[in-house]
Design a protein around this nucleic acid. Structure first.
Length: 455
DNA sequence: TTTTGAGTTGTTCGA
DNA sequence: GTCGAACAACTCAAA
């Protein structure tokens, strides 16, 4: 079955959880299933059972407390707008039943509100935010608690939750790619620290190379805490031959996640609306055919298409390429960043409301501390710079793999004889570019001119 | 209060 | 081929 044949899978209907339109996308649901399965197996090994129940959160939890005699419910704090509302409501409802809801910081390095400017305001620029974070100590991870299990509690079955894709099962090979769950997360962290961390500054930008941590989904699903990662990084930095620059760079990437969460806390509309108000007037276009070409990796720009296909096939895309494809969607195609945000939300295993929203706004130029609008990635230059040998493009865009390096990122410039030699007819196996870079770039700058703040 | 310096990841142009 | 400047204008954070 070819890549395109897989296209029309049925999206899972949105459930009516508190998350509303941000209920987990397809790729996230796959990961969630695997992660829960792993947790269930782990608890079994400890002599317990994981209990699955669905319904109104407060009702379900009250029932469980009655059945077990529990006097308190413990959880990690969450920061999505719906989650904080849910927690507040739950707190009030459980209180009526004399059950305590105990919420603890578990997924960030610093709680939102704990890192503020000297004026007591939230930071809106990353660098001073991160400097302030670095002045605050990060708590060490806590020891594993003693666990006691109640037996014989009724439970639903994970398989009945229909988190996995069917007809077609586009994730059938994902178990070879990913190991959701705590053990897999620990292995991934160990592998990263042992090898890539020391070369992070040089390798992290090369999509063909294993240079990034690939921890994002593990972190998102709570399989690995930031404090654990942090304490490992600090220890590694302190060792004699450590490449502290590389480790610090990686830690700063954790800082971007942190920054996104803090922004989301203070500006909860970030996933839906432009942070900079003048972007509300931006003359976005909405060309379905072009959006589809972008989604399917059929733009005619090899690095963009490689990225979009990697995303579709693996639920992941290399960070450098994420920026390139996002810039292409927003600036070359003048498509609203929310279109890209929605697509990533559905297709990324690490889809995260805070990071996804803030990062799309960063690329579009509408966000806090965003990239200046005139910074428009050239997909050819980016390809030639970061995928020089074309290994990444050849992996994901095999129909042009026979082209020589010289024309791999610019197939439309290849002489006819070379195209023939590589078995490529543009417009047949592989598309002509759907936009001309130079024109698109000028169009983007012109569009930006219309929303420039007048003096 | 006012001032000052700075601000993730780039591209293009011309010398 | 290499290099530096220009690309816009604004807002933020701290002195």
């Amino acid at each position: 079955m070819s890549f395109i044949d897989l296209w029309h899978w049925n999206k899972a209907p949105h459930d009516d959880s508190a998350a509303g339109e941000w209920s987990p996308g397809g790729a996230s649901r796959w990961w969630l299933h695997q992660s829960l399965q792993s947790l269930e197996d782990g608890i079994k090994e400890l002599g317990g059972d994981l209990v699955y129940r669905s319904g109104n959160t407060a009702t379900v939890l009250k029932e469980l407390c009655e059945e077990t005699g529990a006097e308190a419910v413990y959880c990690s704090r969450r920061y999505e707008p719906w989650a904080t509302q849910q927690e507040s409501a739950l707190y009030a409802e459980l209180k009526d039943s004399a059950i305590a809801l105990k919420r603890y910081p578990g997924t960030l390095l610093h709680e939102p509100g704990a890192v503020l400017t000297q004026g007591g305001d939230p930071f809106k620029v990353f660098t001073p935010f991160w400097r302030a974070c670095l002045r605050n100590p990060v708590s060490e991870p806590l020891a594993v608690p003693e666990l006691n299990f109640h037996k014989s509690l009724s439970s639903e079955a994970l398989d009945d939750w229909n988190l996995l894709p069917k007809r077609p099962d586009w994730a059938s090979h994902w178990s070879d790619l990913w190991s959701p769950g705590e053990a897999g997360a620990a292995r991934q962290l160990e592998a990263f620290l042992a090898d890539s961390a020391a070369h992070y500054t040089t390798r992290r930008d090369l999509p063909a190379v294993k240079g990034t941590s690939k921890l994002s989904a593990h972190i998102h699903f709570g399989e690995l805490s930031l404090r654990t990662i942090w304490s490992h990084c600090e220890r590694l930095s302190a060792s004699n031959d450590a490449n502290t620059g590389s480790i610090a760079k990686f830690q700063a990437e954790l800082g971007w996640r942190e920054f996104s969460y803090h922004l989301l806390h203070f500006f909860p509309h970030i996933p839906e609306a432009s942070f900079k108000a003048n972007f509300n007037e931006f003359p976005w276009l909405h060309d379905e055919a072009r959006i589809k070409a972008w989604q399917q990796g059929q733009t005619g720009y090899p690095i963009v298409d490689a990225g979009m296909r990697e995303l579709w096939h693996t639920g992941h895309m290399h960070n450098r390429v994420r920026m390139v494809v996002a810039s292409f969607l927003c600036k070359h195609l003048l498509t609203h960043w929310r279109v890209g945000e929605d697509w990533f939300w559905d297709t990324l295993v690490d889809a995260d409301l805070a990071s996804n929203g803030c990062s799309w706004q960063w690329v579009a130029g509408s966000g806090a501390d965003a990239a200046p609008y005139f910074r428009i990635f050239n997909p050819v230059t980016q390809g030639e710079k970061f995928d020089k040998q074309g290994e990444y493009v050849r992996r994901w865009v095999p129909e042009i793999a026979e082209l020589p390096d010289k024309y791999l990122h610019t197939p439309w410039e290849a002489p006819t004889a070379i195209l023939e030699g590589a078995g490529v007819v543009l417009g047949e196996q592989y598309p002509e570019p759907i936009v001309d870079h130079k024109q698109a770039r000028q169009g983007a700058l012109d569009a930006y001119d219309t929303i420039k703040v007048k003096q």
